[in-house]
Design a protein around this nucleic acid. Structure first.
Lengths: 99, 99
DNA sequence: ATAACATATGACTTTCTATTCATATGAAAT
DNA sequence: ATTTCATATGAATAGAAAGTCATATGTTAT
């Protein structure tokens, strides 16, 4: 394993806004505005985040009229989240959850 | 899945120094000085990173004389890295690797 | 008790990164 | 062609996190 190449992956996912977007998209594909509504964040902020997540192939986009529909990469992102979930629930206590 | 709680996990792992430490510890437990040598970083920098990684249970420590031996949490961290490896090799091209 | 070695820690500074804001692009409707 | 709606983007700023340095703590040896 050449971990150095994982850096960008983790760097992209380690952000509250982007994590909220992932959480929202776990419930299904959404347009930018729908994401904004569901996580209560401003449009340009969300767009900047989305761009970065697409670059890393966390998400893909399709155009639909004026809208762009973003969808989670189910194949790899979801299984990784499940493992992290396991780690967090098994090893992380309250202090670990600060911030 | 409550992704919001994953934030600290990813935030801790998304750092070049800490990733280098993980990479080094994949090859077996090491003392602080050994880690410093293997990744060519300064001691206090490494210690600060180690502290944070222990808080998240990425690592554990045992004392051995004057030294402290750090060891990777094999149970969850290693499988996660493997999945990320899969994602990176399948979905991430060169541009994705910038920085 | 003191010295030497290994590691940890606090405070300051610097470096990054996210957010914000203003504006651009692009598609559909009139 | 112009307006409206949806989204993207560039540049500037603000904020956070990392690195640095000086020093503290703790362990072993003498």
């Amino acid at each position: 394993m050449k971990c150095s190449s994982y850096y960008l992956f983790f760097d992209t996912i380690s952000n509250k806004t982007r994590m909220a977007i992932i959480e929202s998209l776990l419930r299904g594909p959404k347009s930018v505005n729908d994401i904004c509504g569901s996580i209560n964040e401003e449009q340009s902020k969300v767009s900047h985040s989305l761009k970065r997540m697409v670059e890393c192939n966390f998400l893909d986009v399709k155009r639909e009229g004026k809208q762009r529909i973003y969808r989670l990469n189910q194949e790899t992102v979801v299984p990784i989240l499940k493992l992290v979930d396991k780690h967090v629930s098994k090893f992380c206590n309250k202090e670990c959850m600060r911030k």
